[in-house]
Design a protein around this nucleic acid. Structure first.
Lengths: 329, 329
DNA sequence: TTGAAAGCGGTACCAA
DNA sequence: TTGGTACCGCTTTCAA
């Protein structure tokens, strides 16, 4: 910038004004400066700007896995909103590991991101308190913050979605409905399980613990649990799977089995769910809307909004495609 | 850092030494400094460090769409390598738009990323020359740089993959093999078309232009082209689709049609390709390996390697699942 | 082993 | 409308 100033025969500050579109520069001077910038191939050093001004025009995004379809569309939606506001997105995969989550968050903070969007993997976010104090705006997505951590949150209506699913299966005559959920350490898994129980109870049915299995979505476990349930004296006729990966694992187990298929409703929509036969009935979330909403909340605060923490719930939708309409046998 | 120094009763520089694990600090002093850091909740300001040292410990990644499964696994692989080297990833979606690509690259550069990994959308990268000159290491992935731009590149063996696919269909008795490719402006689409032609010619068959269609992967176009080809006096019995999105669009068209299915081989593997009936035979690329290789090339140069530009080709693999083994009818 | 001072490249503030 | 100068928080260099 000094070189530009020298070449244009003006002071440093004048160049700065031109670069930042600040008022108070005559057109003639501005043109001279711009010419000099062009000739020198000058580009502003962001680090220096950040150091002085404090604003990095970047936000940090911590999700479970940038390669997971659910989170990658959330990522894209966040990126789109950020771009609209001239901001860049630093993203990282926590791999569901609280330690990694913390590392990522703190790394982002030390880079002085303006804000954070986090899908929390851990339960203890005390490490965030100093950063919040320091003014780093934070929004939690898909999972809530622990009580006492006053941040905006955007969640899905997990309980409602699970109830919707169970209601649908009940309406198709099922009474023995199993639930295959992710590890109970995951918030959404617990909420969905809760919705499942509530829906059964509300229908006057007692949840049968033999028909509930919570754990990681690996194929072997899913196959094992399905076999176990099928061998029960009173086996299930329908199944609700707690997330996309569990649904896929279940479909793989179905494909490898000879026994008749259970009716199936899966939590989370996924690409090609309509091309499998029968089409997979799902409770659809809207990952892109989740990301967009969170990012908009974030930027609203960055632009000065100052209200109490908001806690939003986005609705889920039942999409019927065939698998959830199989009658009991 | 000044506060820490004051509290610990040492000089600024000593704190800097401790923070950076530099030698030449007595244990006792180091402990005092660390205690002060703890008490003050101090975290180093990266912008200041970057401003002085020049190294940002971050790399920029420009892909077509962070939400696309192919590119998001590439993204994840890059992230993993970067993390191993203590680096962060700034990622952005070019949406196949040269202008947006350029914007992203220049933004990343003004943030002084140490290096760039780019899936180029445009053909003119002159804007990159000053940056390369300035020492920003760049690797192109999935598509090559124009001649004269001396950067490392990592590509897939598109031609070989297409030949593999056509060879497979020929071996199953097909002689009328159609090719449905993406827009000819896309490098990989052209290479795959080329491989398709070569394989036919090598087998003594003249490519029939009526059986070739190049264009965007939208469902309507795909359905239209399939109908058109089927109405030919001598319709195709087999089809090669040029990428994952075209394969999916084709499957949707198949699902909505009553006519007998063509044998199908798709370029790109995709999740659930095994769960569709019949399973989809594909030419698999390895997006994660593409990303990993590019990132390793990048970091090798960042760590001092200085050789001529490397141009790597990664192999493709035929995975048979049923759709490509349907006999001609 | 430790410290003092210069400066990285900008922006903020005040003066001209 | 323009310029001068302090200073952001750290690393580098050199001296003690």
């Amino acid at each position: 910038m000094k070189d530009v100033a020298t070449l244009a025969g003006v002071a440093l500050k004048t160049v700065s004004r031109v670069v930042n579109d600040e008022p108070g520069v005559s057109d003639a001077t501005a043109v001279r400066v711009r010419t000099a910038i062009e000739r020198l191939g000058y580009r502003r050093n962001e680090s220096a700007r950040v150091l002085r001004s404090g604003r990095t025009a970047s936000i940090g995004l911590v999700i479970e896995d940038v390669a997971d379809p659910f989170y990658s569309s959330l990522n894209r939606a966040v990126e789109d909103v950020a771009t609209k506001h001239g901001s860049l997105v630093l993203s990282g995969s926590s791999a569901e590991d609280p330690v990694r989550e913390r590392e990522l968050v703190l790394t982002f903070c030390s880079r002085r991101v303006d804000g954070l969007i986090v899908v929390p993997a851990g339960f203890d976010h005390d490490y965030l308190l100093p950063e919040l104090q320091a003014g780093i705006v934070t929004v939690f997505v898909d999972r809530p913050a622990e009580p006492g951590l006053d941040v905006d949150t955007v969640l899905c209506d997990n309980t409602g979605g699970a109830r919707l699913a169970v209601g649908h299966l009940l309406a198709h005559g099922h009474r023995r409905i199993a639930f295959l959920g992710d590890s109970p350490s995951i918030f959404t898994a617990r909420e969905r399980l809760h919705g499942y129980r509530r829906a059964l109870t509300a229908a006057g049915l007692a949840p049968d613990e033999h028909l509930i299995s919570m754990g990681p979505p690996d194929r072997a476990r899913v196959a094992f649990e399905l076999d176990r349930m099928r061998a029960l004296p009173d086996p299930p006729t329908a199944l609700l799977t707690g997330n996309g990966r569990l649904t896929v694992a279940t479909l793989r187990a179905f494909a490898g089995a000879t026994s008749p298929r259970l009716a199936l409703v899966g939590f989370d929509d996924f690409e090609l769910s309509d091309l499998i036969v029968p089409g997979v009935t799902v409770i659809a979330q809207e990952p892109a809307r989740l990301g967009r909403t969170a990012a908009e909340l974030l930027f609203r605060r960055l632009f000065g909004h100052d209200g109490p923490p908001e806690h939003l719930r986005l609705p889920t939708h039942l999409i019927t495609r065939g698998s959830g309409e199989i009658p009991p046998h």
